[in-house]
Design a protein around this nucleic acid. Sequence first.
DNA 1: CATGAATGAGCCTTCATTCAT
DNA 2: AATGAATGAAGGCTCATTCAT
Lengths: 225, 225, 225, 225
Amino acid sequence: MPPRTGSSDAPRSFVEEARRAQIVRCTIEIIASLGYAQASLATIAERAGISKGVISYHFAGKDELIAQVYTSVMTMAAQRVLPVVEAQPRAQDKLRAYIEGSLAFIADHGPESIALLEIWNGLRTSAGQPVLDARSYEPGLEFLQAIFRQGHAAGEFRRFVPRTMAVAVRSVIDGVLIQRATYGADVDIAESSREIVALFEAATRAVRDDATRSKGPTRKPRAKR
Amino acid sequence: MPPRTGSSDAPRSFVEEARRAQIVRCTIEIIASLGYAQASLATIAERAGISKGVISYHFAGKDELIAQVYTSVMTMAAQRVLPVVEAQPRAQDKLRAYIEGSLAFIADHGPESIALLEIWNGLRTSAGQPVLDARSYEPGLEFLQAIFRQGHAAGEFRRFVPRTMAVAVRSVIDGVLIQRATYGADVDIAESSREIVALFEAATRAVRDDATRSKGPTRKPRAKR
Amino acid sequence: MPPRTGSSDAPRSFVEEARRAQIVRCTIEIIASLGYAQASLATIAERAGISKGVISYHFAGKDELIAQVYTSVMTMAAQRVLPVVEAQPRAQDKLRAYIEGSLAFIADHGPESIALLEIWNGLRTSAGQPVLDARSYEPGLEFLQAIFRQGHAAGEFRRFVPRTMAVAVRSVIDGVLIQRATYGADVDIAESSREIVALFEAATRAVRDDATRSKGPTRKPRAKR
Amino acid sequence: MPPRTGSSDAPRSFVEEARRAQIVRCTIEIIASLGYAQASLATIAERAGISKGVISYHFAGKDELIAQVYTSVMTMAAQRVLPVVEAQPRAQDKLRAYIEGSLAFIADHGPESIALLEIWNGLRTSAGQPVLDARSYEPGLEFLQAIFRQGHAAGEFRRFVPRTMAVAVRSVIDGVLIQRATYGADVDIAESSREIVALFEAATRAVRDDATRSKGPTRKPRAKR
DNA sequence: CATGAATGAGCCTTCATTCAT
DNA sequence: AATGAATGAAGGCTCATTCAT
């Protein structure tokens, strides 16, 4: 009797949960070190020291395994980042906490972060379309946009399109991750964190001096593309 | 006998050049629409309406085909962006030209841009390591860093780590590309371009008020990588 | 996950050993009946009544399969021939035992013998060079040369170049094998055995006339190869 | 209009004959250096500096090309060996001339000899059966058997089965060729020639002492094949 | 629960052959 | 007389999946 495939209602046994967790952990390591495309069930099973069939036994298929990895890492990241962010009252501080928290997570959980990126990049439907739920940064982007809206309402930020800024913040964080994945420990994440916090503070700060404001950047949308 | 495999000196015939171009074009389309992993020779051949063997006839192998796609798109992008950037004397204007040019290329050559990104993400050595020459943004990053160094020397920019800022600029541009790839025409690239230009103008502008300056972020400009 | 690819230490299961043996057996039959070049995995699998993938599952690749066939048959032949030869004290008798044993093996294990010959003839490196370890008869030739050297030392044999005589003996045995492969049961191996024993007895026997004898049998023992 | 494919009656033009000869020559070289299995039309055409299609134009197919190579080399060898052999009145001298001539041909026409061997070994019908006309040594064997029968009739030779001895002679000659193909110039063919002549002189010589004769090996000379 | 075994589709590549020019 | 171009079958191999035990 194959164990639950999504819809079943019986709770998973303790042993089974442990196995699933172990498999997920190995999958993360493999994806991080070899890349999504090389993460075959055979490779994962070998790394985990188990038979290939076990994976199929505990997961409906490779898709469910990858989804589990995705969910698992996303949850870890959210637990690491969200509480700290929401503890800040001011939007500017929330933004800083978001950046610092995200990069700290990358520093502390390199393989998990890289796996996430690989899944975003590699996961496709059978028709070739990116799997939206996984691919899109929607939850993260929405969260950032909320911060920006709060900051706009409070006058903490200069005027800008929240979504574009949200995309920018996420992209830069992911960019650091890619650097880290490519060059390893040569990339100083603490330094990057300080730099990027400064970058977005400067980029979002409401202009103090109204004189400067007159040539403010988002005033007259430049016609030229 | 597959025509030219590297060492031959004879020029390619007109017909062959046309076929190669056609195959490269179809490969770009396939990669852009289905992803790098799904871009098998069979799929490409089907899209091109030719037999699988034709690809092997015109290219030494899949590797050469992908390399050709990469080179071809990189060249297009460079020709679109570099001249405009270098025509600007001031670093601040160069940066704007770089962002505007890159995003304009994305707007005009969506499939090509996406294919490039997919190749960067997907190309691995057999050992699973990313292929550095392709994977790294090094040429682009170096170009941006040169702009930032010029701007620093001229006092146009506030102090920051050039490499981190370069990574940030490239990441944000790629982030817009991903949005475009995911949501298509719903993403207004012209607007994004204006926003991102403003973002980095604000992020790099030399601070007038020296008070802020005192806690200047970039202590030790570190060696690349 | 393909079971054991060289480095693993776990013993093979009974079932797996049986499958490997079955596949090796079918490979021998195919090579013997269709030739080395026609022995594709598809053909072998079809003959074995299994799917092509099974072979890849049990063997690292075609190379390992062929190597296994080679080793397996060589071992059989050696076990059949060597003990009988070494039981003989005199070189002349050793030679006869070698010829009789080799031809008896051919008579009893036709397909295996033919497969061996096909592998010797067909196995090439990718550059087209014969694979020496397999191609060369070196082990067998060395064994024969040792017999001849013993016979020379004991004065049992007339003077001749041991290596050339060794090549001759092996060649004639292989020649009978080819006849057998070509004409099947029409070739009377027992008769051939008697004839060839007589042939080489006459060819190697020390000349009665001791005058010739005085100048010792092996003038210039030439470097092997 | 494709040129003759076997049955046509029009004579071949001079140019066409030259092309065919050139292609045959290159095929011999390729087979000798890379082996039969690696001798693809592409390789041959490349070596010949012509387009692959030319071969198909001048030959009905690969089979006809190989057959042509075979015929061509066999003719060369026959012209080299047969006249010298037939000039000898005595069987013993004919045998020596045959061996010396054959080995001299090998020494002088290494590639051709190796190609012949490769074709014998590699050429199969589509059903996998060896192509008899090519594979069998029949013409050569028959020729040798005739010599032996003459020698038997004249009492020059001891009693033995002509066919077996013929197989032995051919096999040993081919064995030297294989050594030459494997080890190149390290193999001293002149020495081998002397040794092998001596070998078969000793092996075939009529026994002086009739006492030994009484247990003569060949009781019943059996029907060929 | 877990496994070893087997499958079949798909991948990239090579090759003899065909054909319009 | 020759060629460049294209084809389609087959080759070895990998992989997610299934299944009896």
